[in-house]
């Protein structure tokens, strides 16, 4: 401990070391030089500024401060993380709900685009089917087949589809009507029994 605190005259030592070269070449002359160099050694003032000693109290306070800072940081972090967990949970629930809605909507599209539904709607709208359509050949503009081909009324669907139950169809006036008359009669009978208030947005008339 004390060895280090005593400043050494480094130049003098280096000088001594440099001078000591001769020790290797002529060891015999060393006794002659040694007494000579001894008076050169003296205490010199330290060139560096003296570091001020910290009081142990400051050290302890600093340590406690650091520890407290770390503790608070950790507390804050863990609050943030758990807050994030709530947020993540809410977002996950939202994602799940939206996925469900998306699935329902795409399934609605699937069933609304089923041939039975299209045929029912087309028939209600009074559309007819061109049984053997003619074709225009682009290479020479020739019309293949007869242009006045026969048309047929759209046959009512003979292929059942339970997913369309209760779904109305659109008639020529753009109004929603019952898919089949028996169903309509049933609905009327129900309506006579109890008045059911309309829920949800009113269907807009389809005027194009």
């Amino acid at each position: 401990m004390s060895a280090n605190t005593v400043p050494l005259d480094r130049d003098a030592l280096r000088q001594a070391a440099g001078d000591a070269d001769w020790l290797l070449t002529s060891p015999a002359s060393s006794p002659a030089r040694a007494p000579q160099s001894k008076p050169d050694l003296r205490v010199v003032p330290d060139a560096r500024p003296r570091t001020r000693r910290l009081s142990p109290l400051v050290g302890a306070l600093t340590a406690v401060g650091v520890i407290l800072t770390i503790l608070f940081a950790q507390l804050g972090l863990s609050i943030a993380v758990s807050q994030g967990a709530y947020e993540a949970r809410a977002l996950q629930a939202e994602l799940r709900d939206l996925t469900r809605v998306e699935r329902v909507l795409s399934q609605n599209t699937d069933k609304l685009s089923s041939p039975q539904n299209l045929a029912d709607n087309a028939a209600k709208l009074g559309m007819v089917q061109n049984t053997t359509p003619a074709t225009l050949r682009l290479s020479d503009g020739a019309v293949l087949g007869a242009l006045g081909g026969p048309t047929a009324a759209i046959a009512t669907s003979l292929v059942p589809n339970a997913t369309l139950e209760g779904l109305p169809v659109v008639d020529a006036e753009g109004l929603l009507t019952e898919r089949n008359p028996e169903q309509a009669a049933q609905a009327e009978a129900l309506a006579a029994q109890a008045a059911i208030p309309w829920e949800g947005p009113l269907p807009a008339p389809q005027t194009h």
């Binding site: 069933k111 089923s114 039975q116 589809n161 339970a162 997913t163 369309l164």
Partner: peptide, 8 residues
Amino acid sequence: RVYPNGAV
């Protein structure tokens, strides 16, 4: 299980 095209 649902079958959007019914009996098709």
